[in-house]
Design a protein around this nucleic acid. Sequence first.
DNA 1: CTCTCGATCATACGTTCGTTTCAATCATAC
DNA 2: GTATGATTGAAACGAACGTATGATCGAGAG
Lengths: 205, 205
Amino acid sequence: MIERVGTKIRILDAAEKLFGMNGFEGTSLRDITTAAEVNLAAINYHFQTKDSLIDAIVARRIEPVNKKRFELLEAAGPNPTVEEILTAFMAPVMRVKVDAAVPLIGRILSNPEMFVERVFPKHLAPVSQRFIDALSKALPELPPSELLWRLHFSVGVMTHTMLWGRIYPKITNGVCDISDREALVERTVQFAAAGFRAPASKGSD
Amino acid sequence: MIERVGTKIRILDAAEKLFGMNGFEGTSLRDITTAAEVNLAAINYHFQTKDSLIDAIVARRIEPVNKKRFELLEAAGPNPTVEEILTAFMAPVMRVKVDAAVPLIGRILSNPEMFVERVFPKHLAPVSQRFIDALSKALPELPPSELLWRLHFSVGVMTHTMLWGRIYPKITNGVCDISDREALVERTVQFAAAGFRAPASKGSD
DNA sequence: CTCTCGATCATACGTTCGTTTCAATCATAC
DNA sequence: GTATGATTGAAACGAACGTATGATCGAGAG
């Protein structure tokens, strides 16, 4: 007898993959149940609504990432460098094992409405404050608003890379492949850290 | 008698605004015709399909931006600096006058499927090659693949900023407002230019 | 005036969506 | 065995979607 993994997990796995590939609005519950080989009503039975399903999928991937972020920041000691802070912030995202989760995270982070209403308040507000504190300690001469801008820019670097990882090699003849995640972490951290160390722009307060 | 601007332009304006706010799939033709105060059938009469309407909207904003990009790159002379190249690449996007077009451009650039199939081949392939050439001339010691990665990162900085400009101040108590576009250009160029000048990562070929 | 033709109108078509219903099924406890 | 509560199944609901249709409007030409 074939070991059949539970319906709930089958739905989560299929939905994660399809949401990542086609977006949240571009994926119907029927797409998901067909891929998961479960009945249509199973989604509403286990997750009530489509939005709740999305929340469950998001939580399943973001919570371990945030845990790892704190661990890495902790492990870097009391006075981490910019590179160490950025690595702690970015690496757990980029190292996500499940390939299907990579474009999904990109979708989440490039969906402002969903993010600001449902993801940020629940999952990211405490994380970001902690990292802002660490960065301002590592870069005491950088004005706070400029620091926020640059953290914002760094999130853009990370998000764009995850969202486009599946697509970008197609328009560059194979360059910019994201399969080597460790090289990716090094590249993004190096780029963002150099940006953080640039002289503050004149306009900042 | 009130001067009524043509139906076609009313549709383009309303659709641009709504697509920017709610995304392409999150905006129905009925939303658009209601906002534009035109009949539902007017969209199909003037633009045939929703996809064609999207193409028309994209073209209306991207073409002038690309024209300006070439002009700025040209004006920087035969050997532009990294900052000049990045300014030529980013500033025309960020200086777009129509406020509604800013989140729209963010939507386009954060929609890989649409972008790789419809926007990139038609509007951006020649532009990107030109800027890649200029950058590799300004940074001859940087391996080509690393240069592509960093251009990719820079697009992420730009895209994320435009997409989140409307949202970000809400979660930072007003910081990171994009209304001062010139300051924004300076900030992003400074950040990205520093990233480009970082030493090449070990993994690059 | 009448004719013409692009533009606009109300309305409807067929499809797909998220969600609901209720009967059928399964595992477990008694 | 039977009873019970959780899960799955087939089918349908109303709503919203993109698109199509055919009548009507209105300005310019003759």
